[in-house]
Design a protein around this nucleic acid. Sequence first.
DNA 1: TTGTAAGCGTTATCAG
DNA 2: CTGATAACGCTTACAA
Lengths: 329, 329
Amino acid sequence: MRDVADRADVSKSLVSLAYRSPASVSPHRLERILAAAAELGYRPNRVARSLNGAREDFVGILVADTRNPVLTDVVESARATLADAGRLGLVTSAVLPSPSSGSALDVEVVAMLGDLQPSGLLVVGSVPDMDRVVEMTASARLVIASGRPGSRGGLATVRGDDEVGMRLVVDHLTALGHRRIGHVGGEGGPVAAGRASAFAGAMREHGLDAGAIAPSDFTERAGHRAASALLDSADPPTAIAAVNDLAAIGVLAAVAERGLSGTVAVTGYDNTYLAALGPIDLTSVDPHNDVIGRRAAELLLAPGHVPASDDGVLVAPSLAVRGSSTTVV
Amino acid sequence: MRDVADRADVSKSLVSLAYRSPASVSPHRLERILAAAAELGYRPNRVARSLNGAREDFVGILVADTRNPVLTDVVESARATLADAGRLGLVTSAVLPSPSSGSALDVEVVAMLGDLQPSGLLVVGSVPDMDRVVEMTASARLVIASGRPGSRGGLATVRGDDEVGMRLVVDHLTALGHRRIGHVGGEGGPVAAGRASAFAGAMREHGLDAGAIAPSDFTERAGHRAASALLDSADPPTAIAAVNDLAAIGVLAAVAERGLSGTVAVTGYDNTYLAALGPIDLTSVDPHNDVIGRRAAELLLAPGHVPASDDGVLVAPSLAVRGSSTTVV
DNA sequence: TTGTAAGCGTTATCAG
DNA sequence: CTGATAACGCTTACAA
């Protein structure tokens, strides 16, 4: 910085000022400063900036699971929104596989991010030990996207409206004439639990029996097993709504094994690119992850305090109808 | 740090030393220091550490595409290896979608990472503008995993051996009796080009004609179109080796549309979880991304200079045989 | 606008 | 092991 100042024949302070508030530097000196910087290949050191108390002008993005396509969709959309606003988004992976509980917060990474003093923090997905995160990044405005519903009160949250999503599914299936509809899911975390109860609620709204819920988590194998149980029961459903796309693929296999393809309708959830693949062709609820990411980034960018309503922002999903649910009963 | 020193009744210097080389601090003082730190909730500020010239004891991981499952597999494996060695791995997304060329280096992120003075840098995938990256992170030892083959000379590289991979495919298919084998791929970058020429080489080794290469990139749609061209030609192949799993899924669809399922063998590449899905059941080359990630991390961890052989480290793949290629001709 | 000086939290050096 | 001091690259406050 001193070199730039010398070359531009101004003071070190003015160089600093030139980057932080260019407007308050006279145009001709500003130009000289930027020219000198360009010649010297100078750019302000962001780390040094972070060292003094002031919050830095960037947003940290903490991802719970880098392999989950739902989360990476949200992340990329948020990042693009931040970039459009000229704000840097630093994505980091927050979770490390642990021998004991399967996965744990990567404390070191979060600590480092906290030391960087980001002005905002976007947590994408369900990160363990949120209390720790909040504590270590106290400087930042916090928004959670696609996280555990209602895990921590008082935190701003943006997520898909699973109530509406499941209602779309049940509306669609009943419109096709289905009455005996099963659900495969409910296990593996609060998201699954929420979708199961949303399913039950939607069924009741239609005056239908919501008893046929076969426990499954988010995996293909579990979906297959749960669907097998439903299909082999005394009163098998004519349609099955799965908790996500992967489980739905397991359901499709169970249906195919019984020669029921095209007879039993199947739906997934999340509308990942899996659902659109030719051999799969799965009707699925699209939570609009891009919108979730964008809204979350906008909350972080907005001036003032982040509104921390209890429910948070709910993004309305839509239904992507495909071949797996075209049978009319 | 001063507070900890006071509480533990030692000098500030010793607290610093306690964290950087615990062995050189007498056990009983060390214990007192750690106890004081725990009570005060103190941890060394990593950012302040990075500010003075010395390289920091962590590795930055730059990912070219967070949505590419091949790359995230490599990243997670590298991260786990680093964690086992007690080394922090900070994953960041290096590429931002750009209006012009589709995607561009996120210079700000790389600059920030460079300012953090990582001791090592792992670049996963093909990142644009590597010269820029090298320049901005001069402090770090650099290793590239799963990157463009031979893009930049003199850089340490770890990647899958596509020569061997394609030979495994052709060996497998010829063992099943196939003679007319087509390839779908060759477009979309140097990886595709390399696989296409590896395919041609393997065919020649078997004394077969390698002429049937239909241009396709890594997408399902392109795979479908290319396979359609092959299958509708005068002398259609009895087996098709695709450049990756997604293109292979397009190939499967083209095969199915012509009522040739079970007759025409299909193989993919990368052995992503797609290939293992029930309705897809695709034979695929497994590049062992976990090994690639681990080897890359080990290069970074090893003492001394990173060996920068021109070819770099080649990891031998294996073949995951599934239903899509069980037909015996 | 300028120049000066203090401060951010650490590490490094060095004489005691 | 201590204590003091300088340095890392920047921001900020203040007096000129």
